[in-house]
Amino acid sequence: MLWFSLLVLIPLAAVVVKSAEGGWGTFADAVTNRQTFAALRLTVLTSVGVTALNMVMGTIIAWVLVRDRFPGKAILDLVIDIPFALPTIVAGLVLLALYGPTSPIGVHAANTRLAVFLAIAFVTLPFIVRTVQPVLEEMERDVEEAAASLGASRFTTFRRIILPTLAPAIFAGAALSFARGISEYGSLVLLSGNLPYRTEVTSVRMLTYLEGGDTASAAAVATILLVVALLAIVTLDVIQRRVARRG
């Protein structure tokens, strides 16, 4: 407990305290700074976009991994975890190799917003897959068969029976994916070029403040990120509890 406090709680509290220390002035300045605002907007919007994509692709991937059978599926299962295990800086380099200046397929996405999108999609890939997968595995085939025996088409079965069962897991994964998306840093350093107003994300902006010695502003931005991340976690918890109550 003490260790957890020393390592996690007190430092996080320090961030909030620091941002409050400067009064609302610093806070307001940092937040209304056009460059910071642009960074925040880019980060949040891209994360929302990526999360939406993940909700669709993550569910489909989980579906294929659980229900389909083909050679090499085990490898596919392993591939899902790569973005999670790969050091973020390496993730950036990895994407740069295919979508950067030396791209073998001629896609030159480096230093564009597409690169930001790609990087976030890469690092958040596992979240929804890994939350949906166990639910799908535990789901009883009987229920689907019952629906089919009652005359439901496969599409209707999916929409009316399967999707509602998966929904809580999808949303829980989405919250994680979103939280991770807005806080991404490592993979973007090399890939996005960090152009102010265009491809600079919040984490990079914070680091700029920090390197300039303006810890108060950095803390202010950090607090905003913390609040957004906490909101995501609370949402996740609420959904999980609702599921528990239903089950």
């Binding site: 996690v8 430092p11 996080l12 320090a14 961030v15 620091k18 973020t88 994680l176 939280a179 991770r180 807005i182 806080s183 991404e184 840093y185 490592g186 919040t202 984490s203 914070m206 680091l207 920090l210 810890t215 950095a218 803390a219 950090a222 990120l225 913390l226 991340a229 906490l230 995501a232 976690i233």
Partner: peptide
């Protein structure tokens, strides 16, 4: 929390 907080924030927090 450590999973969903930006690593930069983590660093900042420890520095503070």
């Amino acid at each position: 929390v450590p999973l969903s907080v930006s690593p930069v924030v983590v660093g900042l927090a420890l520095v503070l």
